[in-house]
């Protein structure tokens, strides 16, 4: 894949060092302009085959969702962000979800979680037979700058989960 992680790590460490003071002061807009954004040199592609009515779907959001009673909130203080993910069951109710993400306005999602995590709509499509199966588990990430940890540790774990659950297609919803 078109990501040079070693090069990223060097640029990222320098960015952290140069930005920490401003980050702590809340000057996010300035430091994000200097962030060593990875631009992939190609577009990854898995051909889509089959029919939605015969397949299994999972949602992936970066909205910082977690289960208030049983999961740790994401780290919203560190300049690295939080490279972990939380597993959200398809049966989740709005009141069970917390939002830990310091870099977007939560008010619309607080009002209706389907604005960033349309699990209730997806369940309805399953009930109508439009999608074959809604996976039992869905995934939330949060704000993350430490892409090296994300790529080397988190993503392999995430891929192994979705493989284990027999997911066919992912619907990605960034915030």
């Amino acid at each position: 894949m078109g990501i040079d992680l070693e090069r990223f790590r060097i640029a990222y460490d320098k960015w952290v060092e140069e930005s920490l003071q401003e980050y702590r002061a809340g000057n996010y807009k300035e430091i994000i302009k200097r962030y060593p954004l990875i631009v992939s040199d190609g577009v990854p592609w898995a051909p889509y085959r089959g029919r939605p009515s015969e397949q299994s779907f999972a949602l992936v959001t970066s909205g910082g969702l977690y289960l208030k009673d049983s999961q740790q909130p994401f780290d919203t203080d560190s300049i690295h962000g939080d490279a972990s993910f939380r597993e959200i069951p398809k049966t989740v109710r709005r009141e069970e979800l917390g939002i830990a993400h310091a870099h977007y306005d939560h008010s619309l999602a607080e009002e209706d979680i389907n604005t960033i995590f349309p699990i209730h709509r997806l369940n309805e499509l399953e009930n109508e037979g439009i999608v074959g199966r809604v996976a039992n588990t869905h995934y939330s990430f949060s704000y993350v700058n430490d892409v090296a940890t994300l790529v080397t540790k988190t993503v392999p774990k995430f891929l192994s989960r979705i493989k284990g659950e027999g997911v066919d297609v992912l619907i990605l919803v960034p915030v």
Binding site: G63, Y104, D105, H106, S107, L108, A109, E111, D112, N114, T115, I116, P118, R121, L122, E124, L125, I130, I171, V173, P174, V175
Partner: peptide
């Protein structure tokens, strides 16, 4: 806007349309 990729809160029909 950010934080609402599926449109206005409570607009069930639109959320469904976007999934479709």
């Amino acid at each position: 806007a950010r934080g609402s990729m599926f449109g206005e809160p409570g607009n069930v029909k639109r959320q469904r349309s976007i999934l479709m």
